[in-house]
């Protein structure tokens, strides 16, 4: 897992947050985990395929998920329904697509798979036995989103 894959995702998340959620979150400290897992209450998983492959998880608390969905929908989310789930899936989709276009500028051609939403904490996604890098993004408007990335070069995987 190369550190150079981190910034495209972190910067994409900041850019999408700015235009969609009207808030610029701050990047927290990068952490390394032996495997990709999430201890967050709500996690959105996107697969990455192409010259880089692996998974990216956007994790957050239920409170943060409600706040983000409320901002996106334009009204307060009382129960986390299908529209709220679809809003968060779209957020993950937009960040991932934005990140992939940033990676393309660096010469990595990849695609993303449609997002999957997981609810419930301590979910382990152990499809690839490679370490994960995790970067938190903090905002006063919605709390914290944790971006976990487990990505590797296709050549190394073969």
């Amino acid at each position: 897992m190369k550190v150079e894959y981190v910034s495209p995702f972190a910067n994409a998340a900041i850019a999408v947050s700015e235009s969609l959620l009207k808030t610029v979150p701050e990047r927290g400290d990068l952490a390394v985990r032996p495997k990709l897992f999430t201890s967050q209450q709500v996690s959105i998983v996107c697969g990455v395929t192409g010259s880089i492959e692996g998974h990216v998880i956007y994790g957050m608390s239920m409170a943060t998920a409600d706040k983000i969905a409320s901002i996106m929908i334009g009204q307060s989310v009382v129960t986390f329904d299908q529209i709220a789930a679809s809003a968060l899936a779209e957020l993950a989709n937009l960040i991932s697509r934005n990140a992939v276009s940033r990676l393309a500028e660096q010469g990595f051609k990849c695609e993303i798979t449609p997002p999957t939403i997981l609810r419930g904490s301590n979910v382990q996604v152990s499809l690839l036995e490679i370490p994960a890098l995790v970067i938190p993004l903090n905002s006063e408007a919605f709390g914290m989103i944790e971006i976990g990335m487990s990505l590797q070069d296709r050549q190394l995987a073969a």
Binding site: Q82, I83, A87, A89, E90
Partner: peptide
């Protein structure tokens, strides 16, 4: 395909 996008556009 995303419900959220359909609702947003519709609104």
């Amino acid at each position: 395909d995303a419900l959220f996008m359909r609702v947003t556009l519709k609104n």
